[in-house]
């Protein structure tokens, strides 16, 4: 049975949509898993960090008591103060580093939203129902693709408009401060 070219085109687009949808589903699953693992890892790191800090405070209190009891020499106290400052510096670095989970999470969520948008656009490929007449197949195909392209354009603009990028961090340094 001879089929109209526009029907063949529809079948082809539906196949492309199906393949694309499968790959995007895989991407979405990986992104969700990455988000989950990242959140779990940071939560455990945060808990450990708090425990380490509590132990350091206990240690500092014990050293302070030794110093007050006159059991430490001045040079030993000076050395402990240097260690204390080093630890404080590293704690600050850890706190700055831990915040990258928040930023990477925002970027991951933005990517997941874009994947959802692409899935909707691909769905348009398989479900687009343009009018079909058989007297001028080329003209029908041209109109069909034109309508499809317009739908894609609208979907793409909608997706871009709803996905403003709020994270511009490019390195591991801390951010700027402005007081008004």
């Amino acid at each position: 049975m001879k089929t109209l070219p526009i029907e063949e085109l529809r079948a082809l687009l539906a196949a492309v949509s199906s393949h694309g949808d499968w790959h995007l589903l895989e991407i979405e699953t990986d992104l969700q898993q990455t988000t989950f693992l990242l959140n779990e890892a940071i939560e455990k790191l945060s808990q450990s960090f708090m425990q380490v800090y509590a132990h350091l405070n206990d240690q500092q209190t014990a050293l302070q008591q030794l110093a007050e009891a006159g059991k430490l020499q001045p040079e030993e106290m000076a050395q402990l103060q240097v260690f204390h400052e080093h630890v404080g510096h590293e704690i600050n670095q850890v706190i700055t580093g831990m915040q990258f989970q928040d930023m990477t999470n925002q970027l991951l969520q933005r990517t997941i939203h874009r994947v959802h948008g692409l899935k909707e656009l691909l769905n348009e490929l398989s479900t687009h129902k343009g009018p079909m007449m058989d007297e001028d197949e080329h003209e029908e195909i041209r109109r069909f693709i034109q309508q499809l392209n317009q739908q894609f354009d609208r979907g793409s603009q909608h997706l871009t408009g709803n996905l403003r990028k709020s994270v511009n961090q490019q390195d591991l340094s801390s951010g700027d401060i402005d007081l008004f």
């Binding site: 700055t96 930023m103 925002q106 709020s166 961090q169 801390s174 951010g175 401060i177 008004f180």
Partner: peptide
């Protein structure tokens, strides 16, 4: 916030913010 554009800072100032710190912060 992670937002660092001048446009957003201006909106913050107009809303009544006294300052703008971009994440990640140094404690």
């Amino acid at each position: 916030t992670t937002e660092s554009s001048d446009e957003m800072k201006a909106k913050g100032k107009a809303a009544g913010a006294n300052g703008w710190l971009v994440k990640p912060f140094d404690p």
